[in-house]
């Protein structure tokens, strides 16, 4: 995935889209004040300059699907692991909730179901049937909308053709009005994401930790 920070307006449409696509439980204002917000993607704000001459920069932060993910080796029950396609996946049914993965994630993108998930009426009617609902006590995080990836792959298989570049669109990518997010196959050198990842503006978040993140941020050098 590539995220163009110079295009991001911080509108948080991706956050809302992610919530409804992935059946993420809704926190209450009181719980949120205690640090119990439940988002798979969040917008970090960075301020530059002195008031009133101030500039705000936004950075959407989601699971970086690291190739060397620190969360994976520490899980005692193999609830988080690398699938053959290179995604860092979370198997909810295996998770017992030791929290170790979340502590070892330098991006703090994992969220925990502190209680059984709840939705204010009538939000529960818009649940996505393709995504399971996680019970309380289980860790969860961004999946790159694996259900959408699978659906496109199945359709391509049925038609006997390869998956086209840009055919898979996670909910955040689809909803981004500024078209700041692009999703594709980094293994395909001709894909749009591969070309953008070679852009001079490309950076990765905390690459120095050796996590090999798969989210590329595009940012004008200052």
């Amino acid at each position: 995935m590539v995220i163009d920070l110079d295009r991001c307006t911080g509108c948080e449409a991706c956050v809302v889209a992610c919530h409804s696509e992935n059946n993420i439980g809704m926190s209450t204002p009181e719980e949120a004040a205690r640090g119990r917000v439940n988002h798979w993607i969040r917008i970090d704000r960075y301020y530059e300059g002195q008031f009133p001459d101030i500039k705000v920069k936004y950075r959407p932060v989601l699971c970086q699907h690291c190739d060397e993910a620190p969360c994976e080796p520490v899980c005692p029950v193999n609830a988080t692991y690398h699938n053959p396609e290179g995604l860092n996946v979370q198997v909810y049914n295996r998770c017992v909730g030791t929290f170790y993965c979340a502590n070892n994630c330098p991006y703090t993108v994992r969220s925990f179901n502190w209680f059984d998930p709840k939705w204010p009426e009538p939000m529960q009617l818009q649940h996505n049937p393709d995504v399971s609902i996680r019970p309380g006590g289980v860790m969860e995080k961004c999946t790159f909308c694996i259900q959408r990836i699978k659906r496109v792959e199945d359709q391509a298989d049925a038609a006997g053709r390869p998956v086209a570049d840009g055919e898979v669109q996670p909910a955040c990518v689809q909803s981004c009005p500024a078209e700041a997010m692009i999703f594709g196959d980094l293994n395909d050198p001709d894909s749009k994401v591969s070309r953008l990842a070679g852009d001079g503006r490309a950076t990765k978040l905390m690459e120095e930790l050796g996590t090999k993140p798969k989210v590329v941020y595009l940012e004008k050098a200052r």
Binding site: N103, T108, R110, W114, F115
Partner: peptide, 15 residues
């Protein structure tokens, strides 16, 4: 009964 929400834990203080 209620879940670990009854503790003071939050994100990122998981322990």
């Amino acid at each position: 009964r209620d879940g670990l929400g009854v503790t003071g834990l939050n994100r990122p203080v998981f322990w």
